[in-house]
Every structure is written in structure tokens, then in C-alpha cells.
Amino acid sequence: MYVAVKGGERAIDAAHAWLDRSRRGPVDQPVLDTAQIRDQMGLAVTRVMAEGSLYDPDLAALAIKQACGDLIEAIFLIRAYRTTLPRFGASIPIDTAAMRLKRRVSATFKDAPGGQILGPTFDYTHRLLDFRLMADGELPTEPLAEGGETESAATPHVLSFLNRDGLIEDAAPDETPPADLTREPMELPADRTLRLQALARGDEGFLLGLAYSTQRGYARNHAFVGELRIGMVAVEMDIPELGFAIEIGEIEVTECETVNQFKGSRSEPAQFTRGYGLTFGQTERKALAMALVDRALRWEELGEEDQGAPAQDQEFVLSHCDNIQATGFLEHIKLPHYVDFQAELELVRRLRAGLSDQDEDAA
């Protein structure tokens, strides 16, 4: 057994060296710099930050490079690094109404106060390969039509106008301090603040599938995008010695609020209800999927009937949306299970031998 262990260590070292060579690629090509990844692969960087629960574009770019572009592996690296960081305090809730917008659209009101800002998006592009990117390396840049991010004053949320008229459920903030999923294990049933934390760092593909299922009838979740906005928000922190909050930085976030149909219940009048998603960076598919799943999980508190849909089962959703937990449990079966398998193999042989003996006795 000792010889096998030593041999395994040499094989692992050789695998690591092979991985390093594969990551580098042909030596006649320039090395891919982390700054290039950060600045030119921004959507991959923001996904790693969002699901890794750490806002640091440089570290996310490093993780993507180290993981050879495997985003789940990069998320794993960021999560692991995050556990080593000290925590000095907690910021106060960000004010998304004061967001410096670079994209803001509403599918419910054409003439939303503050206007529609299309921003950088694939929504209106033709899904055709642009071979100019291969031939020329880059496209000529054109000046932004309206100066890029808005510098205007606070832009009100679209749903606030429905709220003003009493046509949508009130979104009064809960003053109860939320639990912290990164410091305490999740207990079920989980309240909405804890569910939103889990969804915010959940796997985009898993949430996308669940959100799609709600649209196809598995939860009766017909939604409109009340507003989707992307931009920079200030992060502020209360300083006890000063007696007031100071700005410690800015982060980019995507916020999505959905308007969902609701016929009312015995205790609630007919009105619209909400779904909510908020994630780091420009991650609008994730934020939209998060909002749809959030609304599906609220069936009980809204007095609706359980349709038995996967997206309504919080134990199913919250226990399986984390791609790092899923990856760890899935990929551990690649590791040696020699003893376990040999035990089961011996059991199968004994069972087969017993059946053979019974056949001989019958004959």
C-alpha cells in the first residue's frame, strides 16, 4: 500500500505539470494576461464574482486563467480564497435607485420615467458569427450615442408607480437583520432573505432551467419584466467613531424586478406580485432567472396552492442550486473507491454463487 501511495503522488505531480503546459498553450503565442481577461471577457468575470460571492474583477480573471476557462472551477477557487479573508464589518444596504445606469429596460411601460437605456446587450444582435473578429482582431470602436453611463440623479424604480397606486404588493423592507449564508449553515425552511442569498450565488444554468420550467407551466408563473437595470452603485459602511456612513467603493450590479399575475386570496385583494433578483456585475440572465424562481418559491406566503413543481420546492431548489456543492459531490466519484467497489464485487459474486447452487439443487 505504501508503494501505491508514493506512485500516486508522482502521478499527481505529473498531472499538475501537464495541466500547466496545457494552460500555457503553444509557446509561440503571447501569454494571455489577466488584464485581458478582466477587460475583454467581462461577462465571464462577473459570473465568477457573482457565484463566488466575492467582488474582485482581478481575482476573478486570475481564477479564470488558472482554471483554463472552466468557470465552475474558477468559482471554486474564488470561494476557497474568500474563506481566508478577514471581515471588518458589514455595509449598509445599497441604494439601487441611485444607480449610475448603463442599461435600464422595462417590458411593462414603454415610456418609463427616466427612459429606456438599451446599453451593451446581445438582445438585438443577429446570432451570426462575425468573422471580422477573427480576421482583424477587433472592430473599430464608435463613440457612445449618449455618453455611456448616465450621470443623472436617482432614477426611480418602475414598480414604484404600480406600488403608489396599490396595484402591486408593497415592498416595505424587512428591518430584521438577515442571516448570513456564508457564515452559518442554511436551515430549512429558509426565509426569503436567506433564499435570495442562496439564489444569488447559485448556478446560472440550474436557475435558468428552473425559471424556464415555471414559464412552461410548472408553477403557473407568468411574469413580465417590470424593470431590469445594470450599473454602478456606491457601497457605504457605518463608522461608529464618525457617527455616519462613508462610501468605501463602487460595485457593478444587475437588478431585476418582475411583475407576476396574482388573482388574490382570502386575505389579499387582487394585485400583482413581485419576483426579485440582484447579482454582481452584468449578469442579467441570472438576475431574471433568479427573480422567476424567487416568485415561485413564495407560493406559500402568498396563500397559493402548491402545484408540486420543482421550482416551488425550496428544499429541492436551495439544496441543489449551489454548483460548488454539486461539483464536489459529483466529481468525488472519480477518486479511488477501490475498497468499496471490491466489497460490492465480492457481494455480487457470492449472490451469483448462491443462485448457481440453488439451480443445481433444483436440477
Rank of each mutant, 00 (worst) to 15 (best):
F122L: 12
L139V: 09
G275D: 07
E360I: 13
G114R: 10
P189Y: 03
H126K: 10
I117F: 01
V348Q: 15
Q197A: 02
I64G: 07
R274Q: 07
I324N: 05
L199C: 05
D340T: 15
N260T: 07
L278E: 00
L242G: 04
A198N: 01
R47D: 12
H16Y: 10
A223V: 11
I92Y: 10
E227N: 04
R350C: 08
P336R: 11
D39K: 08
K65D: 14
R82N: 07
T141M: 09
A198W: 04
L167V: 09
V235P: 14
W18F: 12
F316V: 02
L133M: 04
K286Q: 10
F224A: 13
R100N: 07
P156R: 03
R266P: 14
Q358M: 05
G231T: 09
G328R: 13
Q312G: 07
H222V: 08
R100Q: 11
E255V: 13
E315M: 11
E315N: 09
T273R: 00
R285N: 11
A296N: 01
R127N: 10
A14V: 15
E250W: 10
L77E: 12
G303N: 04
K286T: 13
L208K: 13
D313N: 11
I324W: 09
G243Q: 04
E300M: 06
M99N: 03
A291R: 00
M186L: 13
G42I: 12
L207N: 02
V158M: 02
G115I: 15
K286Y: 02
G281K: 03
I324H: 11
Q325N: 09
L228I: 03
A353V: 09
Q197T: 01
E257L: 15
G89N: 03
R195D: 01
Q325D: 11
L159C: 11
